[in-house]
Nucleic acid binder design. Structure first.
Lengths: 159, 159
DNA sequence: GATACGGGTGTTATGTTGTATCCAACGCTG
DNA sequence: CAGCGTTGGATACAACATAACACCCGTATC
C-alpha cells in the first residue's frame, strides 16, 4: 500500500494536471467532457475531501450550471463510471480519483475530524481478497475499503 | 480469511443459537434486551441478508411494536453498538453479526443478485491495514470492507 | 437542406434513508 | 414514594437519490 494524500503538495498544479489528464482521457475514449462534468470534477479536486451531491449542487446552482439534484447526480455518475471519481459509501459522498487512468482498487482513509479523504492503492489488498473469495466461489465485482479515523494532522491537534 | 455464510445450514438452529448467545451477552453486560430489540435481531437473523431500516419498520409496525422510524433506528443502533449487528454501508442496510461475542473486524461479501450477505473474518486484513496506515500517521478507528459480486449459487444460475 | 437519432440537460415530482425534539412510560434505587 | 436514568411514542423535518418527461443540439443520413 502506497499512501499519499496527507502530504503538503502544490495544489494548483494538482488540480490543473488532473484536469488535463481527465481531458485527455475523455478525448481518447470519445467521452463528452461537458461544462457541468468538468466543473464538478474541479470542485472535487479543489477539496481533497468527499463532497455530498447537494454540496456540489449548491455551487453549480450559484454558477448557473443547474439547480436540480439530477444535474449533480448525472455528472457524478459520469465521473464515477469513467473512473474520474469515486463514491465514498460510508459518507454518501464523492471524491475525485487520485490515480487517474490506472486501473485500481482504491481504499480510502477518511478523517472524521477534518473530512479529508486520502485515496490509497488497494490493489494488493484486493488481489488477496479476490483469491480468498474465489475459494468460496464468490465472484467479486467491486471492492470498497473505507477506513475511518483521524489523519496525522488531526491526531496532533485533538485528543 | 475464513469464509462462512454461503453454505447450507440448519437455519432454525442458527437463529435460536444466536438469539441465545445474544441473550447471554446482554445479561452479562447488563444490557436490556427489550422486545423491539429482540425482534429486530430475529428479523435480521431470519434472512441472511441485509435489511433496510424501513423494511424492518414495516414488520415491526405490522406486529404492533412501533410504527415510526426512530423505533427501528434505535433498535438498530443498540444492536450495532453492542456488536450484535453491523451496518452495511454500501447498501444503507443492516445485517446480524455472524460472529457474536468475538471482537472482530468484519468484511462483507454481498451478492448483488440475491442480496445475500456473508460476513467473513477480516481481522488479518484489518491488522495489515492498521500497520500500513500507521506508517503514514493515520489512526484507524473503524474499518469497512465490502465486496459486491455474486455468490456461488447465483454465479451458477445467471450469466 | 430536411429529417431522424442520440446524448446531454432542464424540470417537476417523488421515493428512500436518517435525525432532532419533546414528552410519556417504565423500572430501579434511595 | 420521589427522583433519576433508560426506553419508547409521535411529530416533524433533513439529507440523499431517482423516475419520468420535455427540450436542445450535434451528427448522420437521405
Amino acid at each position: 500500500m502506497n499512501t499519499i494524500g496527507f502530504d503538503a503538495h502544490d495544489h494548483t498544479h494538482c488540480i490543473a494536471d488532473t484536469m488535463q489528464s481527465a481531458e485527455a482521457l475523455c478525448a481518447e475514449k470519445g467521452l463528452r467532457f461537458t461544462p457541468v462534468r468538468r466543473r464538478v470534477l474541479e470542485l472535487l479536486l479543489a477539496e481533497h475531501r468527499a463532497m455530498g451531491a447537494y454540496d456540489i449542487l449548491e455551487v453549480l446552482s450559484a454558477e448557473g450550471l443547474g439547480s436540480q439534484p439530477p444535474v449533480a447526480y448525472r455528472a457524478l455518475e459520469f465521473l464515477v463510471k469513467n473512473g474520474l471519481a469515486h463514491r465514498v459509501e460510508g459518507l454518501n459522498a464523492y471524491a475525485a480519483c487520485a490515480h487517474l487512468g490506472t486501473s485500481h482498487a482504491p481504499a480510502f482513509l477518511i478523517c472524521r475530524s477534518c473530512q479529508l479523504v486520502a485515496e490509497v492503492n488497494g490493489d494488493e489488498l484486493s488481489a488477496a481478497l479476490e483469491t480468498e473469495a474465489a475459494k468460496s466461489g464468490f465472484r467479486i465485482e467491486r471492492v470498497a475499503v473505507e477506513l475511518v479515523g483521524q489523519c496525522p494532522s488531526c491526531v496532533g491537534k485533538a485528543a
